[in-house]
Design a protein around this nucleic acid. Structure first.
Lengths: 124, 124
DNA sequence: CTCTGCCTTCGAGTGCACTCCAGGTCAAGA
DNA sequence: TCTTGACCTGGAGTGCACTCGAAGGCAGAG
């Protein structure tokens, strides 16, 4: 049961301290982070694990708004697992679709690169 | 050699008319789009092909600024192919990296989904 | 001739996700 | 005791990529 300062939490999560405060303010965390007597935030392992989940959702492109919704469901506790699942599945669908699209665009760019490298004859 | 109105070009490219004008204003196109006597834009096949390239770059996440730089290089004409190639390769690198990251985050999310679907025993 | 609708420009507005600032608190070290 | 540095808050600012609004031109239908 470690408990980290905001700077340490920032290092651990790869976010900035600014962003960590912002996420908390914006309701993306499950509870308010605990405070030292000085008022400084102390991040628990649990906080860190949740923030990593948030990071996964964010870096797969989930909007803040949806992360907040997911956090709210988890915060509510047992009983809404179906809703959480639906939210994750919907997100999964979107990400999958984006991967397909980006991959296909990337192939077209690769073709262009091949042209510049003289590995392929120009189309015209 | 067709020549399309902005509405038709919008439909063809999947962009909005607003966005087409914005791209032109912002220097993302190779030349100003031709005009009908009425002042209305007329998009050539060449315009359309270039806009598709722009769309590929954009939807793989290349910033407007970099697309503008690439357009400028192409506009300059022969002699800077190495620069264009470098730009595309650098972009390729970034995209590849993002694909890896997103895919790995997606796998973690899939694990969470599997938990909610009761297909896997919880970790703790 | 008037209406409808698509187009024009310029400039302002929007939404998102941070990112930063000012002014202040607090604990530890010289 | 003074300074330093990490942290606090509320609110403002930033950057990006659109997105829209206002005011007007012009062509074809009725």
């Amino acid at each position: 049961m470690t408990s980290l300062s905001i700077a340490e939490a920032a290092e651990q999560t790869g976010l900035t301290a600014h962003t960590l405060r912002y996420y908390e303010r914006d309701g993306l965390l499950l509870q308010s982070v605990e405070r030292a007597p000085s008022g400084h935030r102390r991040y628990s392992d649990e906080d860190l694990r949740w923030i990593e989940m948030v990071t996964r959702l964010r870096s797969t492109g989930m909007p803040i708004r949806d992360v907040r919704r997911y956090a709210a469901l988890v915060r509510e506790g047992d009983g809404n697992e179906a809703d959480r699942l639906a939210l994750l599945l919907a997100h999964r669908e979107v990400v999958e679709q984006q991967l397909v699209e980006v991959t296909s665009h990337l192939r077209a760019i690769d073709y262009k690169i091949a042209l510049y490298e003289g590995r392929v004859a120009p189309a015209s």
